[in-house]
């Protein structure tokens, strides 16, 4: 339990740093640390497979692409969008209302009884695979075909045209 609170505290600190960092590259680096704390959360919940997949896919692939894109685009002070004052006031107001709504709904709801998993080892590869390929077979297959087709589409877009247009 103690570990959970330390890690949860770190997650919140790093995610605040993500949005408060001045330099966009720094904020991505904080985001990487935030995802790392999520990985530890998964391990604490005995979900090894999810933990390692979160580690590979989010930390290892998606954030590398984020960083890659940020390094390529020009992030100068001049190109920074400047919002008018009234928009800022409206944003603060809207955010405040959202926070009040969230807090009050949580307070009304009260703490429910903690959900106890029937099988605490659900997160291990074997059990997760059995659940995915029995109960959730169709959605799993459909989403995997969707991802594969997206990848094939990307490769197809990158291939050159058979007949290159005439250049002057």
């Amino acid at each position: 339990m103690q570990t959970f609170y330390i890690i949860a505290f770190l997650s919140i600190v790093f995610s605040i740093l993500v949005i408060s960092a001045k330099n966009p590259v720094h904020s991505i680096l904080y985001l990487i640390l935030t995802f790392f704390t999520f990985t530890i959360h998964y391990i604490l919940m005995n979900a090894q497979f999810l933990a390692i997949v979160n580690f590979i896919v989010y930390m290892g692939a998606i954030l590398v692409l984020f960083l890659y894109t940020l390094m390529l685009i020009n992030l100068n002070k001049e190109s920074e969008p400047v919002k008018p004052f009234m928009v800022k006031v409206a944003a603060v107001f809207g955010g405040g209302i959202l926070a009040v709504a969230l807090v009050s709904s949580l307070k009304l709801l009260g703490t429910s009884a903690p959900v106890v998993l029937k099988d605490p080892n659900l997160g291990l590869v074997k059990n997760l695979g059995k659940v995915l390929f029995n109960e959730f077979l169709l959605p799993f297959e459909v989403s995997s075909v969707l991802l594969l087709s997206a990848m094939v589409g990307a490769v197809l877009l990158a291939t050159k045209d058979k007949e290159p247009k005439a250049t002057i």
Binding site: Q48, F49, I52, I56, G60, V64, V125
Partner: peptide, 14 residues
Amino acid sequence: INVGILYIFGVVSL
């Protein structure tokens, strides 16, 4: 660990 190969992949991607 029972996800040994994936651990290697994680380290490589890091």
